[in-house]
Design a protein around this nucleic acid. Structure first.
Lengths: 226, 226
DNA sequence: CGCCCTGTTGATCCGATTCAAAGCGGGTGG
DNA sequence: CCACCCGCTTTGAATCGGATCAACAGGGCG
C-alpha cells in the first residue's frame, strides 16, 4: 500500500465543547485572507472550505479542502500564510488564539491533540505533494476524487463535488481542461458515473484506488523505476 | 512577495541540552525507514539528511532536506510515514519519544516549541507544494538552490550541493536530465557559477529569487492570470 | 430571452520526458 | 603510476502529455 495517511480524529468538540462559538460563511466568503492576523483557529462544523495561496502571477494553488470535523488556521505565526474561503455555505466553530494558547498551557492532553492535528495535516500535505509530484493527470484526479469520497462518504459510493473543475485543477497543478478530460476518461472507463457534473458515483473503487496509487497504464508520471 | 516562510528557531538544544544523545550516520545510511516504529525525534547536529517516500512503482519523492539545527521524525503516529537517509555524513541528536512526551506534559513552553516546529514544517511543505504545483522546471530548480543557499549559507554566496541531480529531480518532480538542463541554463544566464558540479556560487541572487518566485520568462507553469 | 458561468471537446503547440551517447572524475587494483 | 571502471553529469534528438487557444453546449438567473 502507498503510504497515504489514515485520519485520526482531531476534532475540537471533543475537548473544547464549551468554548464553541459558531460563525457562518456564504459561498465565496473568506474565513481569513493570507496575511491576516492569525487570531483564531477554526473547526468546520458544516460545509466545505478551501485553503489556497496565490502566486505572483495570480495563479492559485489550493492547499487543501476542509470538511466537517476538520481544522483550519493552525499556525504559530503572527499572520495566516494562506487564505481560506467557503465553497459551500459553511458553519465554523471559532477558537481564539488566546484561548488556544491558554488551553495548551493548562492541558497537556490538549497540547498533544494540537500536535496530532498538526502532524496529521503534515501527512496530508506530504501525500498531496507526492501526488502532485509523481502522478499523471489521470492519477491525480483519481486521487482527489477518492480523497473527497473517503472524507465525505456517508458510506455510499455517491458523493457531491464541492469544487469546480478549475478549482480541482488549482488543487492538482493541472488546467481545468485537463481535469475535465480526465473526469471524462474515468467516466468512459466506467470507473465513475456522473449523474450531474457535480455528482459522482464511484462504480469501481478498486480501479480508482489503483489509479490514485499510481498503478496501471499512465497513472504515474516521470521515469519508472529500473 | 510570495509567501515563502521565514524560519523560526526551533532547535532542541535550546530546551533539551541535557537530554542530548548523539549518533552518527554514514552517507547512504538510514536514520529510519518508512514503517519503523516512531520511537524518537532527531535533531541534525551536523551533516545533511533527506526525507523521502517511495511510490508503488519505485519512484521516489523527496519530502525535504534537513540541515544542522533542524528536526526530523516528528509525528504522533506509531510508525514513521516516510524514510530518512543521510546524504552527507551526519550526526544527530536523538530524543526518545517517551522523553518528548514527558517533556510536553511537564513543560507547556516546550509543547509550544514542538507545535511551532510542526507548523513551521507545514509551511515549508506547503511552499514546496506550491513550487511543484505551479513552477516551471527552471523556477523549481531556482527555488531549490535558493532554499539550500539560505539554509546553509555561512553568509557567502557560495555553497555545496548535498544532493545529486537525480535527487534534486525527485525533490522537484522532474527528471535528472531536466534538472541538469535547468542548472546549465542558470549557468549560461550567469545567475550562478559552478566551479565544481556540486559547488554553487550565486552570482545574481535577485534574478534567482525572481525565478524562484515565478517572475519572468518561463518561470511559471500553467495558465497565467487573466 | 439573453447573459454569464461552468463544463466539454477539438486542434495545435510547447516543455518536459524519454532514449541515447558521450564527458568527466574519483577510486581501485594491476 | 596509470588504466580501467563506475557513478554522476551533460548534451542531443525524438516523443508525448498537458497547456493553450478556440468553439460550443447546458443551466441558472436577472
Amino acid at each position: 500500500m502507498l503510504a497515504l495517511s489514515d485520519k485520526p480524529d482531531t476534532r475540537f468538540d471533543s475537548v473544547l465543547p464549551t468554548l464553541a462559538q459558531c460563525q457562518t460563511f456564504a459561498v465565496g466568503e473568506h474565513v481569513f485572507h493570507e496575511g491576516d492576523a492569525a487570531a483564531a483557529v477554526f473547526e468546520v462544523v458544516d460545509g466545505v472550505v478551501v485553503l489556497y495561496g496565490i502566486t505572483l502571477e495570480g495563479g492559485r494553488q489550493l492547499m487543501g479542502l476542509r470538511f466537517p470535523g476538520e481544522l483550519l488556521g493552525l499556525t504559530h505565526r503572527e499572520t495566516y500564510g494562506w487564505s481560506a474561503m467557503a465553497v459551500r455555505r459553511a458553519t465554523l466553530r471559532r477558537i481564539p488564539r488566546a484561548v488556544l494558547d491558554r488551553e495548551i498551557e493548562d492541558d497537556p492532553d490538549f497540547a498533544k491533540r494540537i500536535i496530532a492535528a498538526c502532524t496529521s495535516e503534515l501527512s496530508r500535505t506530504r501525500d498531496q505533494l507526492m501526488i502532485v509530484g509523481c502522478r499523471s493527470a489521470l492519477g491525480r484526479v483519481a486521487a482527489l476524487l477518492l480523497d473527497i469520497a473517503e472524507r465525505t462518504a456517508d458510506g455510499g459510493p455517491s458523493f457531491s463535488l464541492p469544487i469546480t473543475r478549475g478549482e480541482m485543477g488549482d488543487y492538482l497543478g493541472l488546467t481545468l481542461e485537463t481535469v475535465s478530460r480526465a473526469v471524462s476518461r474515468l467516466k468512459a472507463l466506467k470507473i465513475i458515473a456522473l449523474p450531474r457534473n457535480d455528482q459522482v458515483i464511484v462504480l469501481d473503487r478498486g480501479r480508482l484506488r489503483d489509479l490514485a496509487d499510481g498503478i496501471g497504464e499512465g497513472a504515474s508520471r516521470g521515469r519508472m523505476a529500473a
